[in-house]
């Protein structure tokens, strides 16, 4: 056992992208959700994806761990291409952590058991070792005292932090966040965002779908704006917020920043 978080890559390590998406197309029946998406993500890079609902941003990150199947183009994660090969899919899934809007914790398992399930059964660790990792990460998200409660006994913010710890227990190389704060009360949003900021500072590669523009401004290396299945604009947060190029982005930003 070395470290329980992602390898702490400094910027000077090899700059090969960890995720490469090339000409990605996806349809739901006749509806064209993703249109020719090209995206490459470098190690330790933090990317925030925003856009109106129905723009395909969730679908895009769900394609990365194959919760959605794409029809055209290629996705390469850490050197492995996503195809129908079940072995590759399971490998990628255990290397890519995901946090959902509605937490999706397992209600019949305690908080700690939620965290140790995959390390024990997928990584084949001993229960004692898995418990140690689980407690370490629960401490990191500041809820070690809730370890033996069930998810139903926790607040939304606590549940989402458990979900983050559960994903981190697999020592993922990339973390995907699918609107992690959209189902939370304002004060709980803060505690979850703080956890995510700490995670970002530890060097994790992150793709975050969110409307929290403050978070984007503070943490993101790159902000991507999507609309109607296309990447309309991408830039560093400074330029993205202060002088957006396309009218569509300006309109979106004015709507979202007004209140």
């Amino acid at each position: 056992m070395t470290s329980t978080t992602a390898p702490k890559n400094s910027i000077d390590t090899d700059n090969a992208p960890i995720i490469t998406i090339d000409k990605l197309n996806k349809w739901y029946g006749k509806f064209h959700v993703l249109k020719d998406i090209d995206l490459s993500v470098n190690k330790t890079e933090k990317i925030v994806i925003c856009g109106p609902s129905g723009s395909g941003k969730s679908t895009l990150i769900r394609c990365i761990n194959r919760l959605e199947v794409h029809q055209e183009g290629s996705i390469i994660v850490d050197g492995t291409e996503l195809t129908d090969d079940v072995k590759h899919i399971n490998e990628i899934r255990s290397d890519v952590g995901m946090v959902f809007q509605h937490f999706n914790l397992f209600p019949h398992l305690t908080v700690l058991e939620n965290c140790t399930l995959a390390p024990i059964w997928v990584r084949k660790k001993s229960k004692i070792e898995a418990d140690e990792i689980g407690m370490e990460l629960l401490t990191k998200v500041r809820i070690p005292d809730q370890a033996h409660k069930y998810p139903g006994q926790l607040s939304g913010g606590q549940q989402q932090r458990v979900a983050i710890a559960r994903a981190l227990c697999m020592q993922p190389r990339v973390m995907l966040f699918d609107e992690p704060t959209s189902a939370l009360d304002p004060e709980m949003i803060k505690e979850v965002l703080e956890t995510m900021i700490e995670l970002a500072e530890s060097g994790m590669t992150m793709l975050v779908v969110t409307h929290e523009m403050g978070f984007a401004n503070k943490v993101a290396d790159r902000v991507i704006f999507m609309d109607e299945g296309q990447i309309v604009e991408q830039n560093d947060p400074g330029n993205f917020f202060n002088n957006p190029k396309s009218d569509r982005t300006k309109l979106f930003l004015s709507q979202i920043l007004e209140h």
Partner: peptide, 12 residues
């Protein structure tokens, strides 16, 4: 969501 969570942590 339960099924997606189980798949996303790599369970067979």
């Amino acid at each position: 969501g339960q099924i997606e969570a189980a798949r996303s942590i790599g369970l067979s």
